Amino acid sequence: MNKQASMPVEQIETPFYTITVNENGTINIYDKQLQRTFRDVLLLEDVGDDGDEYDFSPLPGDEAIYNKEVKATYSLRQNSCFAYADIAYRLPVPADLDSILRFYNPAPKATTAVFQWNKPLLGVFRTNLNEELLDSLVADECGTFAVEVKPNEVQTVLVVDKQ
């Protein structure tokens, strides 16, 4: 086990990639072998979905919310064995809908996503893919809750507003 401390860096540099973070929280990845830059990786789109686990059915009149125009904060750390990026920003969420959040983790390690819901919550519930309740997650008085997703796992979470 390497006990070398990680140091803050301006960009992540490996023998194969150079990774930079953009102002909106997306990242640019320069692949040194391909000599090609992949821009705006991690660009997110949030849209309403009236479908089920088998199909996507857009809501009439719904407009997508993107992280293109947000102002992100971030920190990068790296040592000779690993690199770490912590990127945070806020996206507006429609006030009149409960939200289904789905997470998939393709990484070889567990990943934790932390959310702060800036409105009163009735509850946060882990569900199966059919959106049947399994258990509840703990949210603090500020609406902050965390979801841990194991490697190759899908987690579905229902967030219910008090409104």
Score class of each variant (00 low, 15 high):
140 D>K: 00
126 R>S: 05
148 E>F: 10
31 D>P: 08
52 D>N: 15
53 E>C: 02
133 L>W: 00
21 V>R: 02
40 D>Q: 15
104 Y>A: 08
1 M>R: 02
38 F>Q: 08
86 D>G: 04
106 P>L: 01
113 A>C: 10
132 E>A: 13
114 V>E: 11
15 P>R: 03
16 F>V: 09
78 Q>P: 08
9 V>D: 06
86 D>S: 05
163 Q>W: 07
139 A>R: 03
100 I>P: 00
43 L>E: 07
129 L>R: 07
70 V>C: 00
86 D>I: 07
30 Y>P: 03
7 M>I: 14
138 V>W: 11
84 Y>P: 05
115 F>E: 09
28 N>Y: 02
112 T>M: 05
37 T>Q: 12
37 T>L: 10
90 R>K: 12
39 R>W: 01
122 L>C: 03
47 V>Y: 05
78 Q>D: 09
131 E>I: 13
136 S>M: 01
26 T>M: 06
50 D>S: 04
106 P>T: 01
86 D>A: 02
162 K>D: 10
110 A>Y: 13
137 L>K: 09
150 K>Y: 05
64 A>H: 04
151 P>F: 13
128 N>Q: 03
163 Q>V: 15
106 P>H: 02
109 K>C: 04
15 P>L: 05
40 D>E: 15
8 P>F: 08
151 P>K: 10
18 T>D: 10
132 E>S: 13
6 S>F: 14
84 Y>I: 12
160 V>Y: 04
25 G>K: 02
157 V>R: 07
95 A>W: 03
133 L>S: 05
100 I>W: 01
155 Q>V: 15
37 T>P: 07
126 R>E: 11
132 E>Q: 15
162 K>C: 05
5 A>Y: 08
70 V>H: 05
11 Q>R: 12
37 T>G: 13
146 A>S: 15
131 E>Y: 03
145 F>Y: 14
85 A>E: 15
121 L>Y: 06
67 N>C: 11
130 N>D: 07
67 N>E: 10
23 E>G: 06
158 L>T: 11
130 N>T: 06
21 V>M: 08
161 D>G: 10
64 A>C: 04
25 G>F: 08
119 K>C: 08
43 L>W: 04
161 D>E: 06
110 A>M: 14
107 A>C: 12
104 Y>V: 13
127 T>W: 05
11 Q>H: 07
34 L>F: 12
148 E>D: 13
43 L>R: 09
42 L>S: 03
6 S>L: 14
94 P>D: 13
50 D>H: 01
46 D>F: 09
144 T>W: 08
93 V>C: 01
131 E>T: 11
81 C>T: 12
123 G>D: 12
110 A>E: 14
146 A>E: 14
151 P>W: 11
160 V>S: 03
24 N>H: 10
80 S>F: 01
62 D>G: 11
105 N>Q: 04
94 P>S: 11
90 R>S: 15
90 R>D: 15
42 L>P: 04
153 E>K: 13
82 F>N: 06
139 A>W: 05
9 V>W: 11
122 L>N: 10
161 D>T: 10
38 F>T: 06
157 V>Y: 06
113 A>S: 12
140 D>I: 00
61 G>D: 14
113 A>L: 12
